[in-house]
């Protein structure tokens, strides 16, 4: 079933249009990977889907509802969560408080959910009382994902989760992304680590110059010679 459908969306910053009519789709439980060079509009697409930027054209449909033009606080209530690329944690709060804030709109008892998050990221459980600002980049990325998962979203948007991480941590983060996906959460991921993110993707898109260039399964895009030459470094 189609979970998210982005149709012919144009968007940008003020007068500057960055996306010139982009259409993508994500199905429940899938990992969808968007790759492309710097300035392709990948982060802009994420921000537009999550309502941080309002599209100037096109529609965004989530779970059958038109959410075009919604603000993020409304979208988060629909079952979509977003992890920005930078400044994605509350540094002066502890790990546990960051997770509690993730559950801010929940009125029910969310302790069970917290335990599930700690099972996904066991290292966080040991550090639950630590301030996140003092933790390493990899740990902060885990806190950021944990925070976003507190609402039990059906779709998780990850904006370059492996950016600025050491290579061994990149593998660890990707393994956690697969683990999150196995719990039934669909993931839309934007990545510079193009090969690695296509390897785990059910569906992949190549974005360049604000337009969709290729759309295929992750495996096929990896095998595609043109994609390899232009976007995966040969």
């Amino acid at each position: 079933m189609s979970l998210l459908r982005v149709e012919e969306v144009t968007s940008g910053y003020g007068e500057m249009e960055v996306l010139h009519g982009v259409s993508i789709e994500a199905t429940s439980g899938e990992i969808v990977s968007i790759i492309g060079p710097n300035g392709a509009g990948k982060s802009t697409l994420m921000k537009t889907i999550f309502g941080l930027l309002h599209p100037t054209g096109g529609t965004i449909v989530f779970k059958g509802n038109d959410i075009t033009g919604f603000n993020p606080d409304r979208i988060v209530r629909q079952g979509m969560a977003y992890v920005p690329q930078v400044e994605n944690i509350f540094p002066s709060l502890t790990v546990h408080e960051n997770l509690e804030m993730g559950a801010f709109i929940r009125r029910d008892d969310f302790r069970g959910r917290t335990e599930e998050i700690y099972e996904l990221f066991p290292i966080l459980k040991d550090r639950r009382k630590q301030r996140v600002g003092k933790m390493s980049g990899g740990e902060q990325q885990m806190v950021a994902m944990g925070r976003a998962l507190m609402l039990d979203p059906q779709l998780l948007l990850l904006d370059e989760p492996s950016a600025a991480l050491a290579p061994n941590l990149v593998d660890m983060i990707f393994s956690r992304i697969i683990a999150i996906n196995r719990t039934g959460v669909a993931i839309l991921i934007v990545e510079q680590n193009a090969k690695q993110s296509l390897r785990l993707a059910d569906q992949g898109y190549v974005l360049a110059g604000g337009r969709k260039r290729f759309a295929d399964t992750g495996q096929n895009l990896l095998a595609n010679e043109e994609v390899g030459k232009l976007y995966l470094g040969g």
Binding site: P72, P84, E87, F90, S92, E97, I105
Partner: peptide, 16 residues
């Protein structure tokens, strides 16, 4: 405290 840290992230998180 979270909002003092980062107002934008607070909104994205659903904090009122």
């Amino acid at each position: 405290r979270a909002t003092a840290d980062n107002m934008d992230l607070s909104r994205v998180t659903g904090i009122n």
